[in-house]
Design a protein around this nucleic acid. Structure first.
Lengths: 228, 228
DNA sequence: GAAATAGTGTCTTTGAGACACTATATG
DNA sequence: CATATAGTGTCTCAAAGACACTATTTC
C-alpha cells in the first residue's frame, strides 16, 4: 500500500475456464486489444482492484464477469506463474485460477466482433497464445484430470439437473477415456451429494433418472482414483 | 514494472516449513523485529527481489536461507491468501509455500537471541502469531496430511539414509495416527524410489535395512489413500 | 531366555473393473 | 419386433488392513 520506489513485479490474475461442448473440452479465451500480444488470444484476467475485490478469488470472478459475461460454477486457485521473461514488459507474477461452468454460448455481448470465444482444447496447439498461457492451460487441464479421478468436481460442468449418462460423458471427456457406468453410480450413491427428481427422456431409449445437487453440500473426495 | 501511481496491494511470500523432532511436528517461526506485530512470532517470508529471484520459488528459498539459515528439502506452493484486513498496513496478497526438511536445530546464527525457532505444532495455539499466519499454518498442515495419505512426500523429513521404522514414525507423526508397517513396506517396494545400503542398529532390536532415495527420482503418488 | 525392533505370510476387507443381464423407451 | 439407452447383479482384481508368525539383535 505504501508508494514503492523500487521495481515491483506486476501481479495479475488469469482464469482458465473449462466447459464441455459437443463432447469436447473447451477453454474460454479473449482476444487482446493492447500491446503486448495485441490481437492474440489469451486467458481472461487482470489486476486486482483494491477497492472492489475482497480477495483474489473475488478479483478472478469480477474479471471473468467483466471480460466474458460468464460466472463460473466452480473456481479454485491453480498455481502462481512467475519470472522475468513471461511478460515482455518485465518481471511478472500471475495467479492462475481454474474454473468450471456448464457450457454457455458467448456472443460478443461485450464489444464489437468476436473478442470472446470458446476454443476446443484439442485445437489450441494451432494457436499462438499470449504470454505463457498455453503452459498455464496445460497445467489446469492436468489438475482437472487429476481431480476428476477422485472427486465429483465434474458435476460443475452440468446444469443443475442432470442424468448419470450426462455425468459419465463429462467425466469421459475430461479424462479422454471411458469409465464404467457402474463405478460412477456407486460413487453417486456413496457421495450422498444428490437428490432425485422426475424423469426425462434422452435419444431413443429408456428415460433416465434426473439428479440434482443437494443445496450447500461439499464435493465429495474419494480415497481411490477411478480409471487409473 | 511500470511505476504505479494507484494503490498496489503488497505481494509477499510466506513459508511454512515443517520438520519432525521428538516425535512431534514442528514449524519454523521467526520473531518479527518491526511493526506491525513487532516481537510476534511469524512465518519467515518477504518480498520478491526482481534482481535476485528468478521466480517465486527462488524467492521463497532465498528468504528461508536468509532468515533461518536453512534450505528445505522439499518446497511447493500452498495457496494465496489475500484481502484488505490481514495486514494492518492495508490490502495484501501473500503466496504461502509449504516446505519439508529433516530436523536441524536452529541456533540463532542470524542475530542476537532467539529470533528463529522450531515450535511444536501442538503448542502453537498458545501463541498469538502475526497476521493470519496461524490460519496459513493450519492449511499447510492439512495439505501435508492429505499428501501423506497418497504420496511418499514424508521422506523429505528424513535424512538421506533411513529405515522403514523411521519413515513409519514420520508418517504417523504427520497423520496423528498409526499405520500398518506392512502397507508401508508394500508402498516402498511398489514405488521403486529407493535403493538399499548396509545395516544399522536401532534401540534394542534387530538391525534395520537402510534405504536411500534413488538420485533424481520423482516422488511417487499412489492412487489410493492409506489409513483413511 | 526375555524384550525389543525388523520383516514376512496370509487372510480379510474395500471399492473399482468387467460384463452379462434386465428394464423401459422409440420407431 | 429391433434398437437404443438406463440401470442391476455379481464375479474378478488390486491394494490396503489386520495380525500372527519368524528373524535378529541387546541385555
Amino acid at each position: 500500500m505504501t508508494e514503492q520506489h523500487f521495481t515491483l513485479p506486476l501481479f495479475t490474475v488469469d482464469n482458465v475456464m473449462f466447459a464441455i461442448d459437443n463432447a469436447k473440452l473447451n477453454v474460454l479465451l479473449v482476444k487482446r486489444a493492447a500491446e503486448p500480444y495485441n490481437n492474440y488470444w489469451s486467458l481472461p484476467g487482470g489486476v486486482v482492484d483494491v477497492t472492489l475485490d475482497k480477495d483474489v478469488e473475488a478479483c478472478a470472478m469480477r474479471k471473468l464477469q467483466q471480460k466474458t459475461g460468464l460466472t463460473p460454477a466452480y473456481l479454485e486457485q491453480l498455481e502462481v506463474f512467475s519470472g522475468p521473461d513471461r511478460d515482455p514488459r518485465g518481471y511478472s507474477i500471475s495467479l492462475a485460477f481454474f474454473a468450471l461452468l456448464p457450457y454457455t454460448p458467448v456472443s460478443s455481448n461485450i464489444n464489437s466482433v468476436s473478442h470472446v470465444s470458446w476454443w476446443p482444447l484439442d485445437q489450441l496447439h494451432q494457436l499462438t497464445l499470449a504470454f505463457d498461457h498455453q503452459h498455464i492451460i496445460h497445467h489446469a487441464h492436468q489438475r482437472l484430470q487429476q481431480k476428476a479421478l477422485y472427486s465429483m468436481l465434474p458435476v460443475f460442468c452440468l446444469p443443475s439437473t442432470f442424468t448419470v449418462g450426462q455425468l459419465k460423458t463429462v467425466i469421459e471427456t475430461i479424462l479422454g477415456k471411458e469409465i464404467q457406468r457402474k463405478s460412477l453410480m456407486r460413487r453417486i450413491e456413496a457421495s450422498n451429494m444428490f437428490t432425485l427428481t422426475e424423469q426425462k427422456q434422452h435419444s431413443g431409449g429408456r428415460q433416465a433418472q434426473l439428479y440434482q445437487l443437494k443445496p450447500g453440500v461439499n464435493i465429495t473426495h474419494f480415497n481411490r482414483n477411478m480409471g487409473a
